[in-house]
Computed example of a mutant assay.
Amino acid sequence: MKDALDDILVIELGTVLTAPLAGMMLADMGARVIKVEHPEGGDPFRRHAGTFYSPHFTAYNRNKESMQLNLQSEEGKADLAKLIVKADVLLDNYRSGVMQRLGFDDARLKELNPRLIHCSVTGFGTDGPYRDRPCYDAVAMALSGIASQMVDAEQPSLKGPSLSDNITGMYAAYGILSALHKRTRTGEGARVEVSMLEASIAFSPEGFSQYTRLGLVPHTLSRVAVSQSYAFRCADGRLLCVHLSSVEKFWQGFISAIERPDLLEDERFRTPAARAGNYLELAATVGETFETRNREAWSQRLQAHDIPFAPVNTVPEVMQDPQVRHLDVFYEVQHPQEGKLTAIHRPVRINGGRGPSDKAAPTLGEHTEAIRSEFGLS
């Protein structure tokens, strides 16, 4: 089967994470994505490892073409206009007002291409008191309330991967696909706007529902207590995660697996509500038991009792995990300049397949001359 978007041309004016992730998701589904980069250095993410081809950049830019274009020059703006005339999607994550200053406001874009889907990703939206402020992942996580459910107030420290950036890129791709589908019926283009603040709030709706309906302010243990999610250290120092949910059979099986029938009679843990209310006490009590066997032994016992569990894998362990290897998640791709690279297949299969093989992220300006010739640019 041909890829779903193989007739779609995307012009990406994106840097770092949000727009590049959205562009990569479209490219993974077959869209042709031309990434427009400044001649001097290109996407800043290229330089995170001291080169123009950092691991950070390659993670978010597979299956794209790179074209160098100076949008500060009149020639560069004229060339961009020619690309827009042919494009189906224009994607940017500039600050509010930048596209207008470049001469590409909504009216100009509609004049150039009435069928264009223009997706603009911003930090806080295109208007309002924060519209001109810079925004990055940690800022959006903090302002949206996500960080308050992850950061210990007594020992504050941000941890983990980029969430708001990735969340926003996914919502941008979702909005673009919706606009493209509507265009098949109306023939008209659309303006799609996604802010990191709104996307982050929308991604974690449960806490707001709890607060508005029950008056509960979520904190770092709110979700894990209700879902009965735990991380335990085993005798060999390795970590293991258990998620018991509210299904009583998992609690009963868990008690059998760890051989702690005494917990069934403990008033603190008799019901799901009691276990949630005494989450830290239960975690400490069971944690002592997990220190008596190594992780492999506990994994075998939990699996035998059909308990939802998993080792807390490091990145190298993920790549060697039997299920991950079975799914063929990782693969090697040969880049003409950078050599052999490890990449990740798109996570979506259609009719059992992923489509054509993925291409490595482009080097800076790798396709400039070919694109200039094809589109008749200056």
Rank of each mutant, 00 (worst) to 15 (best):
K2G: 01
K2S: 05
K2Y: 05
D3S: 07
D3W: 03
A4H: 13
D7V: 10
L9S: 13
L13D: 14
L13S: 13
T15W: 06
A27R: 04
M29E: 03
G30P: 03
A31E: 09
R32W: 08
R32I: 13
V33G: 10
P39M: 03
G42E: 09
G42P: 02
F45Q: 12
P55N: 10
H56C: 08
T58G: 09
A59V: 05
N61S: 08
R62A: 00
K64R: 03
K64W: 01
E65W: 02
Q68F: 07
L69K: 02
L71V: 11
S73K: 10
E75Y: 07
G76N: 11
D79M: 05
L80W: 06
I84K: 09
I84P: 08
V85A: 15
D88P: 12
V89P: 07
V89M: 12
D92A: 15
D92K: 14
Y94C: 04
R95L: 04
M99H: 04
Q100P: 11
F104R: 01
A107I: 11
A107G: 10
E111F: 02
N113G: 09
P114E: 06
H118M: 13
V121M: 11
V121K: 02
T126F: 10
T126E: 15
T126V: 12
G128C: 09
P134R: 13
D137I: 05
A138R: 02
M141V: 07
A142M: 05
G145R: 09
G145P: 05
M150G: 08
D152Q: 08
S157E: 01
K159N: 02
S164M: 11
D165N: 14
I167L: 09
M170Y: 01
A172K: 02
A179R: 00
A179M: 00
T186P: 03
G189N: 06
R191G: 01
V194T: 15
S195C: 04
M196E: 04
M196W: 06
L197K: 04
E206G: 11
G207N: 00
F208E: 05
Q210Y: 00
L214G: 10
G215V: 13
G215Y: 12
L221P: 05
S222A: 00
V224C: 12
V224Q: 15
V224W: 04
S227T: 00
Y230C: 07
R233T: 11
A235P: 00
L240K: 05
H243I: 05
S245C: 15
E248N: 03
K249N: 09
W251Q: 05
W251V: 02
G253K: 05
A257H: 08
I258K: 05
E259N: 13
L263E: 06
L282P: 01
A283H: 08
G287S: 12
T292R: 07
R295Q: 15
S299F: 03
R301L: 15
Q303K: 00
H305M: 01
D306E: 02
I307R: 06
I307P: 09
P308K: 10
E317P: 14
V318T: 11
M319H: 06
D321F: 03
R325G: 10
R325Q: 15
Q334G: 12
H335C: 02
G339S: 03
A343V: 14
I344D: 11
I344Y: 10
V348S: 09
N351C: 09
G353S: 15
G355D: 14
P356E: 12
A360E: 06
P362I: 14
T363M: 13
L364Q: 03
T368F: 00
L377M: 11
